[in-house]
Every structure is written in C-alpha cells, then in structure tokens.
Amino acid sequence: MIDHLLTILVGLAGGIAVGSGLVAFITVLGIIPRLAQLTCTSTWVTRYENAVILGALAGAWMSLGSPGLSLPVIASVPVGLAAGMFIGLLAAALTEVLNVFPILAKRVGAADRISWLLFAIVLGKITGSLFHWLYFNSMR
C-alpha cells in the first residue's frame, strides 16, 4: 500500500514540476506570441495556445499507457513533416527570444563564424533525427 501511495506521490510531483516548467517556458519567454510574430500569423495566437494545451493534455494522457499508431508509410510522411516543422518553428522562436546563437558564438570564441555554427547545429539535428528514425525504428 505504501509503495502505491509513494508511486502516486512521485508521479504527481513529477507531473506538477514538468507542467510548471512548460507553463513557465511558454509564458515567461513569450514563445507563442513570438512564433506568431515570426510567421506573420498574429491573429491565430488563440489557436496556437489551444493547440499547445490540447497537445500537452494528449501527450500526458498518452504517456499513461503504451499507445501505438499504425499508419501506412505514405501517411507517416506528412505527420513527420508537420511535427518537424513545429519543432523547428518552436526552436527558431526560442532562439530568437533568447538570442542563443550570438551568446553561444561569443562563449566558444566563434563570433566571426556564426553561419558555420548554425550549419553545424542544423546538420547535427538532421543527422540525429535520421539516426533515430532509421536505426531505432528498424529495431522494432
């Protein structure tokens, strides 16, 4: 009985911590309004907020079990493309808000080579994504 209560308590505390971090990340940094501003879709801010809320709720609900989607390969391509575009736009908005690249370039002493730094980050992200999708999905 104590094991179950402890598991519930740890799960609840972890959920509160992660949820609070997500809300602080999105609210304090102004990620959604900046994303809307970058994409020139400021009239859709409410839709973006609703999508984030529904996505967080769906992700939390799905993480409670082991859901699986059996999509044909042809349907997986648009879903993967949409997910990649969302992550890319969110990362672009975050780096824009935090001015990450100039700070990183200054710290590593590569201020005159920011374009190379950007290229390396993009290439690393693409390589990591391809490795994950091609290698780990082939093991299933």
Rank of each mutant, 00 (worst) to 15 (best):
T7I: 06
F86M: 12
A82V: 15
T27K: 14
M1Q: 03
A110W: 09
A36N: 05
G19N: 14
G88L: 02
I114M: 12
R107S: 13
F136C: 03
L90P: 02
G109Q: 05
S20W: 13
L117D: 02
S70K: 02
L90K: 05
L35K: 01
D3F: 02
G65Y: 03
I31M: 11
A110P: 02
A91I: 04
L71A: 15
Y135P: 03
V100W: 09
G21L: 15
T7Q: 06
W61C: 13
V79R: 06
L64T: 11
V77E: 12
L29A: 11
L35I: 05
T27W: 10
L94V: 02
V23N: 05
L38R: 04
T27L: 12
F119H: 09
F136E: 07
T46V: 13
S70F: 07
C40G: 00
R113Y: 11
T39E: 11
I74R: 13
T127A: 15
L64S: 07
S20F: 12
G84E: 01
L57R: 09
A92E: 14
T39D: 08
A60C: 12
A51Q: 10
W44D: 10
I2C: 00
T43H: 15
P102N: 08
A111F: 04
V28T: 13
S70L: 07
S115C: 03
F101D: 03
T41M: 09
P78R: 00
W133L: 11
H132M: 14
T27P: 00
P33G: 03
T127D: 09
L6A: 10
P67F: 08
N99C: 12
L90Y: 04
L9I: 05
L12S: 10
S66E: 15
I26L: 14
A105H: 01
F119D: 12
C40N: 07
L118W: 05
H4Q: 08
L9G: 01
H4G: 02
L90E: 06
A58M: 08
G21W: 14
A83W: 10
G80M: 10
R47K: 11
G15H: 05
A120P: 00
V122L: 12
M62E: 14
G14M: 09
L81Y: 12
G55K: 11
V77M: 10
S20K: 06
T127L: 15
F101V: 03
P72G: 07
F86S: 10
L117G: 01
G21K: 07
A17V: 08
V73S: 05
V28P: 02
T7D: 05
R34E: 08
V108Q: 13
M62I: 12
N99K: 15
P33D: 02
W116T: 13
W44G: 01
A105C: 14
A58S: 09
F131E: 05
L29D: 01
V10L: 14
A93M: 09
N137S: 10
S20H: 09
M62T: 13
M1S: 04
T7H: 05
M62S: 13
F136T: 11
G59Y: 06
G14Y: 04
L9E: 03
C40V: 08
H4V: 04
L35G: 01
